[in-house]
């Protein structure tokens, strides 16, 4: 393997102390994510997939083990703006237009005005929202808002994109469309993407690597390297190869549950 490691976790654990006793959100996670990969995290709720993403983003702190992001600690990586984070909700500021929302990180990072204008134009084009720069969030549909929030995460050119169930609240038709767009975007930008989901077809369709997790304690129960080609039309989902991978994911999830 000559691929460059971007996120590397070894024996990573995180225990939340609660009134009902300790909760093992993550237990001995070992994982390598290489540059340019599209990695999906799938598992039932409480399996720690979101927590893992938050640890990588320095929004939670591990209680044991090691994790590095771009070879640094997550805190250093965050301070160097190594990643863009897309949350479950779009979280656009209602008092800013779409364009101004995308500028938010650019303003904070001290990027020049002219550069800001150019970047906003470019990322809006990437998510196909060119005509909506001057619109306020409430004038957009839920799917468009989520695209705008992806544009916001792309605007400052971080190499890593961390996405926490970004399409979870959207209906299936919109979701299919956004999945297709996301793959295009990934191909164009060659970013490393970590994507949390609880949809098996979504995980299989998007990923080069699928991390199947199981709850209590949150562990990795299977890591599947996808054999699907990088070029993926939507109807690849009916191919035997796709179904075979989906089957293996389902098996992994089931194994995790029987443990409970």
């Amino acid at each position: 393997m000559t691929a460059q490691s971007v996120i590397s976790a070894s024996n990573l654990s995180l225990t939340f102390e609660t009134a009902d006793g300790p909760v093992h959100a993550l237990k001995d996670i070992n994982l390598e994510i290489n540059k340019g990969e599209f990695v999906s995290f799938i598992g039932p709720s409480g399996c720690g997939k979101t927590t893992f993403l938050r640890v990588a983003a320095d929004l939670e702190h591990p209680t044991a083990g090691q994790i590095t992001v771009n070879g640094m600690s997550p805190e250093e990586a965050r301070k160097r703006r190594a990643y863009g984070y897309v949350f479950q909700a779009a979280g656009l500021y209602p008092w800013r237009t779409i364009g101004k929302n995308i500028r938010l990180p650019l303003e904070i990072m001290g990027i020049s005005k002219s550069d800001q204008v150019e970047r906003v134009k470019r990322v809006l084009k990437l998510v196909d929202l060119q005509d909506f720069e001057k619109k306020f969030p409430w004038q957009l549909s839920g799917g468009m808002q989520q695209r705008a929030s992806i544009a916001r995460a792309l605007a400052f050119d971080a190499d890593i994109l961390l996405m926490d169930e970004p399409f979870g609240a959207l209906d299936e038709i919109v979701r299919d469309h956004l999945n297709e767009q996301l793959l295009d975007l990934w191909k164009e930008t060659q970013k490393t993407i970590c994507f949390v989901t609880h949809s098996i077809p979504e995980a299989v369709y998007l990923s080069t690597k699928i991390v199947v997790m199981s709850p209590r304690p949150g562990r990795v129960s299977d890591v599947i390297d996808s054999t699907l080609p990088r070029e993926r039309p939507l109807d690849i989902r009916e191919s035997p190869e796709f179904i075979a991978i989906a089957h293996r994911v389902r098996e992994g999830l089931r194994a995790g549950h029987s443990y409970d």
């Binding site: 983003a57 320095d58 929004l59 965050r78 301070k79 703006r81 990643y83 863009g84 984070y85 949350f87 479950q88 909700a89 979280g91 500021y93 008092w95 938010l104 990180p105 303003e107 904070i108 990072m109 400052f156």
Partner: peptide, 27 residues
């Protein structure tokens, strides 16, 4: 929490959080 986390991922300072998020939200 999410809005605050978002600014944290940008490594925003407290004063940036105040002027760009807290103050407009409080109007």
């Amino acid at each position: 929490r999410m809005e605050l986390d978002l600014l944290k991922t940008y490594n925003a300072t407290r004063s940036e959080t105040f002027w760009k998020l807290r103050l407009p939200s409080s109007m």
